[in-house]
């Protein structure tokens, strides 16, 4: 059995590296063929051509593309992602500052998605074609079709009208003086520092962005959980347990739920990409000051090193999230493990 996980990791590691390679190459080339000279943009219109040339040379932009790429990769593997041409700060340091904010948002979003969608999926499956199911269907449809920034703006407006005290911008109330470390996750750091007031404030700040981000996922996962439950409900093994008087709630919540959570998990892995994409917009609406807004700024300012770092890190997280999901699924579903072991 242990072998299975070793093989899984080994196989994934190879895939991981290949994806990273292709990804870095694509983004590297892309960033260099789009119009606009990064050096010129960094220095502004008033700089002389000599100054621009000098910066280009310093950035290595005058060298052949291959040389640039090799030099980039050889630095990147040591964790050196270069400097921002806008702020002249280390990109890796910036990422370390901004990434936790986004990760915290995304993780809370995923928790919300599962906390809402799975029970809703179970409920709509159980009362199929009743008013519960129909409302669930309506709710899911809204979640999937309406873009997340619209939810974000609507929530902000509603809050401004009805709960003026509810925070709608930023991560935490700055007046509280939030602890700065060690994880960068405010929810964790505040607890470590023994500051329940900060924790509460962070939670309040998280609620709207996470909710707007979660809506699409909730819609999708609800529907998938529902159809998986319905599909498995009619199987013989349910009839077996029913014939021997095992209570319905045990059949549903123990036997069916585990079996039916495999499909939604798989979808969640794919959903992760659009979650990061949507976070770019939602972070802007809520002035979240996270990794996504950092990335957006970088793109607009053609801050080459920062853009590449953002794409690479997003890619790494996407792959890592899917690896974690594969692991969870293989723990849930023993058939996968035996297939490998045989």
């Amino acid at each position: 059995m242990g072998n299975y996980y070793v093989a899984l990791f080994a196989r994934r590691a190879v895939g991981f590296l290949m994806v990273l390679f292709v990804l870095s190459l694509m983004i590297f080339v892309l960033a260099r063929i789009v119009p606009g000279d990064p050096a010129r943009m960094a220095l502004g219109p008033s700089a002389t051509q000599a100054q621009v040339d000098q910066l280009r040379q310093r950035m290595g932009l005058d060298e052949p593309l291959i040389t640039q790429y090799v030099s980039y990769v050889s630095h990147a593997v040591t964790g050196d992602l270069g400097r921002s041409i806008v702020s002249d700060r280390e990109v890796s340091a910036d990422i370390a500052t901004f990434l936790p904010a986004t990760l915290e948002l995304v993780i809370v979003t995923i928790v919300i998605i599962f906390a809402v969608a799975v029970p809703l999926g179970v409920l709509t499956a159980r009362y199929r074609n009743s008013w519960i199911d129909n409302s669930g269907r309506f709710f899911s449809l809204i979640g999937v079709t309406i873009p997340s920034f619209l939810f974000a703006v609507t929530l902000q407006i509603l809050a401004a009208d009805h709960f003026p005290s509810w925070p709608t911008l930023g991560r935490v109330d700055f007046q509280l003086g939030a602890p700065a470390g060690p994880t960068g996750f405010l929810l964790v750091d505040s607890l470590l520092a023994g500051r329940p007031d900060v924790f509460l404030s962070a939670l309040q700040h998280l609620a709207f962005p996470a909710l707007s981000l979660a809506m699409a996922g909730i819609g999708q996962i609800t529907r998938i959980t529902r159809s998986a439950m319905i599909d498995h409900q009619r199987r013989d093994h349910v009839l077996t347990l029913k014939s021997f008087g095992v209570p319905d709630r045990v059949i549903v919540f123990r036997y069916l739920l585990k079996l039916s959570s495999i499909a939604p998990l798989t979808i969640m892995g794919l959903e992760f990409a659009s979650l990061i994409g949507n976070a770019f917009v939602v972070e802007m609406v809520f002035s979240w000051g996270g990794f996504a807004s950092y990335g957006l700024d970088a793109i607009l300012q053609k801050d080459l090193n920062a853009v590449m770092a953002v794409v690479l890190v997003s890619g790494i997280f996407f792959i890592a999230a899917n690896l974690v999901i594969d692991l969870i699924i293989s723990i849930l579903d023993p058939r996968l493990r035996f297939k490998e072991a045989r």
């Binding site: 013989d236 093994h237 579903d333």
Partner: peptide, 12 residues
């Protein structure tokens, strides 16, 4: 039960 293949929940 008739079908020994489908009469058990495969993940338990």
């Amino acid at each position: 039960m008739q079908d020994p293949l489908s009469s058990f929940n495969p993940v338990f």
